[in-house]
Simulated scan of single mutants.
Amino acid sequence: MDKEVLRECELAVHWGISPKTLQRWRCTGYGPKYLKLNKLVLYPVHAVLEFEKTSLLQSTSQNSSMAKPKRNNSRPLNAREVALTVRLPTYWFTNINMRQKLGIPHVHIGKVVRFNLDEVKAWARRYSAEIEKNNGGDTVKRTDRKGPRLIAIERLSLI
């Protein structure tokens, strides 16, 4: 690799993967850093080498979930993933009106909405504290039958 940049197809051939894989990686925030000029995607060689270096493993045990700690901010999560992780209703994250009403932090990656888990957890703690303050110390007003919103608010206090 004596060039300063590689085109998407060149990098795909070099690694033996599909260009679609590189495109998917870019959408999820994974892979080497890239430069986009109009429709042309270029990968600086130093960024490719840096990514390869950080991806090196000593043994297969390093790849197991038990061997390495999970990084919450490793990649942006979609609405379903973040809802399952924080145990809140998916529609809070998929519905634009609910996201705005509740002030849920999110980012747009192209036309796709993604969530940073650390930011969502911090929001959940703030939102839970706000609800608790408004209810005078009770997280949820006690009733015989709890609706999905009350159950979700109770879950917020566990985050």
Score class of each variant (00 low, 15 high):
K121Y: 01
G103E: 11
A47C: 15
T94F: 07
N95L: 05
V45L: 14
A12P: 09
M98N: 13
C27K: 12
L40I: 15
K20W: 00
L22A: 03
G31T: 09
T85R: 15
K33E: 12
A83W: 02
G110N: 08
T139P: 00
N97C: 06
P105Q: 03
H106R: 04
E119K: 13
P44V: 14
L84H: 14
T90S: 05
N135C: 07
K70Q: 10
Y30A: 07
I131E: 10
R80E: 15
S18R: 00
K53T: 14
K133H: 12
H46I: 04
G16H: 06
K36P: 01
K101E: 14
K121S: 09
E81V: 02
N78H: 04
V48A: 05
H106E: 04
K68S: 12
S18C: 04
S64K: 10
L35G: 02
L57V: 14
L37Q: 10
K111R: 12
T54P: 00
T90H: 09
T54W: 02
T85N: 13
K53V: 05
G136Q: 03
K33I: 01
K53Q: 12
E130M: 08
G136E: 05
L35N: 06
S128Y: 03
E132N: 10
V86N: 05
F51R: 07
P19H: 09
W123M: 08
S18T: 12
Q58T: 12
H106V: 00
A122C: 02
P44M: 15
K101A: 15
P105D: 03
R26A: 02
C27Y: 01
S74R: 03
A12W: 06
E52I: 08
I17A: 04
G137R: 07
W25P: 00
G103A: 11
D118C: 06
V120F: 06
H14R: 12
